[in-house]
Design a protein around this nucleic acid. Structure first.
Lengths: 131, 131
DNA sequence: CTTATTTAAGAACGATTGTTCTTGACTGAT
DNA sequence: ATCAGTCAAGAACAATCGTTCTTAAATAAG
């Protein structure tokens, strides 16, 4: 096996780079051109691997929930996914639900998670520096 | 005074209609075509009155904060503005801050507001019905 | 070497984006 | 009736959107 030209990029690294972009700039705010630039992966290769922009977004969201949700207090991606996409994309909504369950479990109480989410929103109104 | 052809639409009604749309579909998710369709106001008239899509968005956000924030538990617009736009638009961030101050004052405690915001995010992962 | 198969590069696609321009309709004042 | 000023209707704008197509490069097997 292993026929054909070998892949010239690390799929997981590309997903991680995409996640960073989606978390900072939202789904609609991130263009495929942006994703190509940030990941360094060719457009066609991204489409071969992930099928669509939405496919890459879902991969990035899952990567984030699985790997980076515990770390630090960075809830930005989760917040954005919930507010921007959950209402119009069932799969996103279910990832959001899964993330919240994970946070509840990690925090011990549901109220701790709820407060953390609310505080994150509160922060977003605070000390600003444009992008 | 009052020279020229009279305006054929109610500016505040247009802002309210725009707010409804922005709250449901986000900023980037709402096109100017959508706004024209929903408000019934001509493109050129919207640009004359509000200058840009962003101008109409800010007017809609302010309308929402001033007039509809108290009502019911509808925090959708606020959440979306915070998560999607506050990080990239200073004026949006300051409106978000103002809204949160209003909520704090109305609720009596900061914690009540924070919990409400967190709970709204939590809801978004829950019972879904696509758009 | 050929053949089969997979990936990469880049141009190109139609569609939609936000915005503006052109033309004409309507009004109050001279 | 003419003028000046505001608004409306719709076409049109360049730019960007997400996606796909064409062609070449790279590998494994026969």
């Amino acid at each position: 096996m292993d026929v054909g030209r070998p892949k010239g990029f690390d799929e997981e690294a590309a997903v991680a780079a995409a996640a960073e972009l989606f978390a900072r700039r939202s789904y609609d705010g991130t263009s495929v051109d942006d994703l190509v630039a940030q990941t360094g992966v060719h457009r066609g290769s991204l489409y071969k691997s992930f099928g669509s922009k939405r496919g890459l977004y879902l991969a990035a969201l899952r990567h984030y929930v699985d790997r980076e949700l515990g770390r630090a207090g960075d809830l930005q991606f989760l917040l954005l996914a919930a507010a921007e996409r959950a209402a119009v994309d069932e799969e996103v909504a279910s990832e959001v639900a899964r993330a919240i369950e994970l946070l509840d479990r990690a925090a011990g109480s549901e109220e701790a998670t709820t407060l953390a989410l609310g505080n994150k929103i509160r922060e977003l109104g605070g000390g600003r520096g444009d992008s």
